[in-house]
Design a protein around this nucleic acid. Structure first.
Length: 561
RNA sequence: GGCCCGUUGGUCAAGAGGUUAAGACACCGCCCUUUCACGGCAGUAACAGCAGUUCGAUUCUGCUACGGGUCACCA
């Protein structure tokens, strides 16, 4: 077989050589130790939690080392592509603080465009580049074409690939594959010529020289030393439409774009042998690999499952809807990424997570389960440190989008809203009640007459006449100008008048001696004023509500008794 | 089924041939407190199993079990 002749027949239009490309995309001029990483999604939908994860790692590695973080769109499968997905991806990532130095970016017109010297950054636009290397491989006798007729191709596209694989008999399959592969390798130059004349499409397959009985030692930066069986499968490099498969595009792109560290999910581990083979055939320097463990969830039977697209917590847009602040989600991701992050954060409470010395060695090599409890806790801590102003504007922004009626109330009187969110904020022991913006309504809704209603009842064990008397007495002596202590002393006085205990210690010593205590009287007032048994400090609440609202609500409660 | 990866409390995890096997979340109790939240203090709870190496193994080796991933002209 004359490989030069074959290469010319298959790629007559390719005139460039790999050397030309090397010149066009020279090595990057970066300081020692600078890492070049990328996020390389296929535009098939929204950003997945499992996608934000590796992109955060890539971003940290690059920017922490003074390197480059770029975005490459892997749109080599036109069948699965979703319109606008790439744009959405970029927007969502930016929302979570993931910004790219180069690659596919969002132009002023909201459309994708390229920025940087190593483009194009959309694989669909790089066909000629791949073909240069494809031709080289054919010339070297490392790749060969396999022809199919159009009818066969249509039939192939028609079947559900996944269903077919599942129903396959594995043992039978492995024997057949080697046989069929051998037959395809033996194609003659005449057969190629004939097929090309007939206009039959072909795929380009690699000529695998591996022996799966032999193991290649390989060091993954997260997994450590692994043993990879050599690849003996003549996998597809170019599909019949001339577009490369992931494997081929990965080798060519990450080489030309100068990627130093490939961060991707561990589901790629089984195809690593293919990539090692490609880099060897193409004489490319192998990048470092970080194969990260999957994010899991618990299924109905209590087994761990890969967090899939349909699961709650998978789509990053879900977090926006649920009211999680991006800063909280990022913080949570950091706790999952590096086990010593929380410790560092405790010691450096004021520093942003971007200053954390992210360390590959501290990354888990087993999967982790998504934990809303932990996310909520992290969120409460993050939000408790925000200023009232910040919380007000974020809650308002969230509510306007997802709870317009509530949003309108907040927007109507921003100063009032801010006073509400200032409760317990600041100081050494800030209130930690909000985990999401959506929680705000439940805690604070009663401040608005439109949302106020009696949610918790006063315990039926108390005499209605006691309640009425307490509330009436309070109205009689209530003066909003009172200092807190004066205000509470008045409540104590009412308590004593009722024959309740104003001294909690005395009450606890002998509960039977009293009909109730000052906490009970406070509870009457709290339910009347807030509609709830649990609320922030009642004095503060009354101060914010103002005399009119306080009196009206208490009167309404008296009337209802 | 083959191949690959993994397995420390309910969850995330530190650790390393000799430790009372950290810490965080969750849960529970107590204290503080007029309720809630916060805060403080304590508590329940773990090295998947079996062999081997060793004076000693959760840590090293092997096997088993379990979990996950993968086996496309998808990425």
């Amino acid at each position: 077989m004359n490989f030069d002749q074959l290469a010319e027949m298959l790629f007559p239009n390719v005139t460039e050589t790999p050397e030309d490309l090397e010149r066009r995309y020279p090595p990057r001029n970066l300081p020692e130790g600078a890492k070049v990483t990328r996020f390389a999604p296929s535009p098939t939908g929204f950003v997945h939690f499992g996608g934000l994860f590796p992109s955060t790692i890539g971003e940290r590695l690059a920017h922490q080392s003074g390197g480059v973080f770029y975005l490459r769109i892997e749109d080599t499968d036109a069948k699965r592509e979703v319109e606008g997905a790439a744009e959405g991806l970029i927007r969502t990532l930016a929302h979570y603080g993931i910004h790219f130095d180069e690659g596919a970016i969002l132009g002023a017109d909201g459309k994708i465009c390229d920025q940087g010297a190593y483009g194009p950054y959309r694989q669909s636009e790089r066909a000629e580049i791949y073909h240069v290397y494809a031709k080289q491989l054919v010339k070297a006798g490392k790749a060969y074409p396999v022809f199919t007729t159009q009818e066969e191709l249509d039939a192939l596209n028609a079947v559900d690939k996944k269903a077919e694989i599942k129903s396959k008999n594995w043992q039978e399959d492995s024997g057949n594959r080697a046989e069929e592969q051998q037959k395809q390798r033996e194609i003659t130059i005449e057969e190629v010529a004939e097929n090309l004349r007939a206009g039959n499409p072909f795929v380009l397959r690699i000529l695998a020289d591996g022996d799966p009985e032999k193991k290649i030692p390989f060091t993954d930066l997260i997994k450590g030393t692994l043993e990879i069986p050599e690849n003996d499968e003549d996998f597809v490099l170019l599909k019949s439409d001339g577009i490369p498969t992931y494997h081929f595009a990965h080798a060519v792109d990450d080489h030309l774009m100068g990627t130093t560290h490939v961060v991707r999910g561990e589901e790629w581990l089984p195809s690593l042998a293919k990539h090692l083979m490609l880099f060897r055939y193409l004489r490319f320097k192998l990048p470092k690999y970080l194969h990260i463990a999957q994010i899991m969830r618990l299924d109905e039977n209590g087994n761990k499952k890969k967090l899939s697209k349909r699961d709650m917590g998978a789509n990053m847009d879900d977090y926006s809807r649920m009211g999680y602040a991006p800063a909280c989600v990022c913080e949570y991701i950091m706790t999952l990424l590096n086990s010593n992050y929380e410790e560092w954060h405790a010691q450096n409470p004021e520093k942003p997570y971007t200053e954390f010395p992210f360390n590959i060695k501290k990354m888990s090599n087993s999967g982790c389960l998504f934990d809303f409890n932990k996310l909520n806790d992290v969120s409460k801590n993050v939000i408790s440190k925000m200023t009232a102003e910040e919380v007000t504007s974020q809650v308002t922004e969230w509510a306007l989008q997802f709870d317009p009626a509530f949003g309108a109330l907040l927007q109507n009187d921003p100063a009032y809203a801010q006073t509400i969110f200032a409760i317990g904020r600041g100081g050494k022991k800030p209130r930690k009640d909000l985990a999401t913006w959506a929680d705000a309504k439940g805690y604070m809704g009663f401040f608005f007459d439109e949302l106020f209603r009696i949610e918790d009842q006063i315990d039926a064990t108390f005499e209605k006449t006691d309640i009425r008397k307490a509330l009436e007495e309070f109205l009689a002596t209530y003066d909003p100008a009172d200092e807190m202590q004066v205000w509470f002393d008045k409540i104590k006085a009412i308590t004593d008048k009722l024959g309740y205990a104003s001294d909690m210690k005395a009450y606890k010593a002998d509960p039977a001696a009293f009909r109730g205590n000052v906490a009970d009287v406070s509870m009457f007032l709290r339910v009347a004023v807030t509609g709830k048994q649990n609320a922030p400090d009642l004095y503060t609440v009354m101060q914010i509500l103002g005399e009119g609202r306080v009196r009206a609500r208490i009167q309404k409660m008296i009337d209802s008794l």
